[in-house]
Design a protein around this nucleic acid. Structure first.
Lengths: 238, 238
DNA sequence: AAACTTAACTTGTATATACAAGTTAAGTTT
DNA sequence: AAACTTAACTTGTATATACAAGTTAAGTTT
């Protein structure tokens, strides 16, 4: 599956901005100039620019042009869907994952509700502790529908579940609904994490969907509050 | 300024989904059928569908169609940029805003950094306490560049600053970069909010930009942890 | 000097056309 | 019955054209 033309143009312009070749408050070349440069139609250029704008790289102003935004502040992880492994890799942190438990089980009421399954369905239930710089910071509790992910191993969970799903099973993870709240730590949190006396825990609950809109995963990611940081780029809806 | 055709089509379809006329897992009519129905070209329909997809209303599947998603869970506030007033109105909560302080001041190092201003610029500095159901839950600390917002009154701050900016000054708020962290309460937090013994506070820091990409506002919104909730719809970047 | 006009740019919207590529179900071959 | 083929659908990409509407700077009028 080769990338589309507008996607290649997006990649190149995004890189130029990230590498500092195009700086904040610069104007990009006009759509017509870019069309000439990339031997593409103006509409194709516009698709690439639309993506740049959605991802916080540029701001388009009618009559004026495309202004490069300051991306230094959105270091990471521009909301989006990023696995812990991908994130840790990019941040260059010494991260370690320990699989606390992995089992295949019949759904209970809680999971039936969250994964919208039948009574009889089975689910993979995985608990993992994430260590960063030798501190146990995050407890990830994942629940995956066994109908969609038939087999799962400790080894896969120690690496990246997402990489396994996408590369081995050919599943395409497409979108998620997330909710961030702050709760009291459970016994489990206290037992598994280095909470250092903190009496709250940040909980990120995600419902994750495939590209055909099937719900296949529910995750609770439980973070020690002082190490939690969520960065978002939001456009106002009008 | 009249709305564009694709925007009107988006509005109508979004309404139909919100009102339950189109239910989760339904397929929308095909692009060609919609084009016929709305007397529009397929490209115009596609623009409307693109918006629906970005806002979490539908999932497009090549060869298949547009699947309606379950929006019951993203009740609010689908990340985005929403003012407290708009939010409280929609939620139907009994909300009250008290202006703790409002003053015009020369920028200090902190504000110069966050608002990227000149040494000599002036800034409006506003502190407001948000009460919901008689509890002081949120402390909003806003800083606005006086060059862009020349005058500001207590009355405006008690209502909605955003409404004033957009309706009175004709400014168009376009996007924001947000960061969510958890911190220790300051003396000010303890004094102004009903913290009920909570020893952490959720801090949402926002840099807010106009449609010409000018940074005009920095805000810290400080929430009591048990009342904080952030909902997000995220698409995976590939 | 100030106010206005205009021309040349910019992006935004809408349309039409062509073909690629994925899905589905009916029909055909094995 | 199972496997394959095909036709008719679906969405995705790419192009070209036309005009609307915002910006800017040079030129013109007052």
């Amino acid at each position: 599956m080769t990338k589309s033309k507008f996607r290649l143009i997006y990649d190149e312009l995004a890189q130029e901005i990230q590498k500092g070749k195009r700086k904040a408050n610069d104007l990009l070349p006009s759509e017509n100039e870019l069309a000439e440069k990339y031997q593409a139609s103006r509409e194709t250029i516009r698709k690439a620019l639309k993506l740049l704008s959605e991802h916080g790289y540029i701001q388009k102003v009618q009559g004026k042009g495309s202004i490069v935004l300051d991306i230094s502040k959105i270091d990471f992880p521009i909301s989006g869907l990023v696995s812990f492994k991908e994130l840790a890799d990019k941040m260059g942190k010494r991260a370690r994952t320990t699989v606390v438990s992995i089992e295949r089980q019949r759904v209970n009421e809680f999971l039936k509700e969250h994964l919208q399954t039948q009574e009889s369905e089975e689910v993979w239930s995985v608990a993992r502790v994430r260590e960063i710089d030798q501190e146990k910071i995050i407890l990830d509790k994942d629940f995956l529908r066994a109908e969609i992910v038939p087999s799962l191993t400790k080894e896969v969970c120690e690496q990246s579940i997402y990489a396994y799903l996408e590369k081995e099973l050919g599943l395409v993870v497409s979108f998620a609904k997330k909710e961030i709240t702050v709760e009291e730590p459970t016994e489990e949190d206290l037992k598994l994490l280095d909470l250092e006396g903190y009496s709250t825990i940040v909980v990120v609950k995600s419902h994750v969907y495939l590209d055909d809109a099937r719900l296949f995963q529910y995750t609770e990611s439980r973070h020690r509050p002082d190490k939690f940081r969520f960065v978002d780029f939001a456009r106002r809806v009008r």
